[in-house]
Design a binder for these strands. Structure first.
Lengths: 106, 106
DNA sequence: TTAATGCTCAACTTTTTGGTTGAATAAAAT
DNA sequence: ATTTTATTCAACCAAAAAGTTGAGCATTAA
């Protein structure tokens, strides 16, 4: 396997799982404990913890110890590179389609 | 595993692999045959064909039969949903940061 | 102090992924 | 007509991912 951009790899991989995306969406409503995040899913606590570990490795969230609980927060910034990658591709298409349009109008 | 958005799943999964991202980037320079796409990588023809199958399933490319070769083209549009997802998240952060800034300026 | 709660860790299983090789197919070149 | 070229297919393999269960560790509540 090629390995030249770990950040993009980790980000896209983290986002490829619907459970993890749902957790990120959940966290937009504010910080939550692991238990609260696990609740909507039919998976074990440990599985949830693993998903959050992947999100944390990808710097998409941060886990903060708070007494015996752990609060998860969204982490800004990590998504930027992935977003930039997609936008660059979209830009390619926009310009390609514009060129086509221009050509058709001639 | 939860399964409520196959399009996002497939797109992000397809983009999570660096070989596949490199192939997409390669295709921005114009359509290429499978052989040409395989060339920069130390993997077999069959492996390349599989990667392209995943990209095709995700509607990121299209394979067009052309004689005994197959030309691959980038496919616009499929990336939009993934891009929109990321932009929505980024927007969340922008507004959160703006709110913070406003609060600090008071 | 003991019991319960919130979470992680370690070991294990199953499924998916990314790769291989060799045979099959279809078109092009000889 | 035969061979070479371009690609796919099928069967397989190893490693990674996603899940499980049960033990272990802090912290809080009784």
């Amino acid at each position: 396997m090629v390995e030249y951009n770990d950040v993009l790899n980790q980000t896209f991989r983290a986002l490829a799982d619907p459970t993890r995306r749902a957790m990120l969406e959940d966290l937009r409503r504010g910080p939550k404990t692991i238990g609260a995040l696990a609740e909507p899913f039919a998976i074990s606590f440990a599985a949830t913890s693993k998903h959050l570990g992947i999100l944390e490795d990808a710097r998409l969230i941060r886990r903060e110890k708070q007494g015996r609980e752990r609060l998860c927060h969204l982490e800004p910034g990590a998504m930027q590179e992935a977003k930039a990658w997609l936008e660059q591709h979209a830009a390619f298409w926009n310009s390609a389609l514009e060129a086509l349009e221009t050509a058709l109008n001639e």
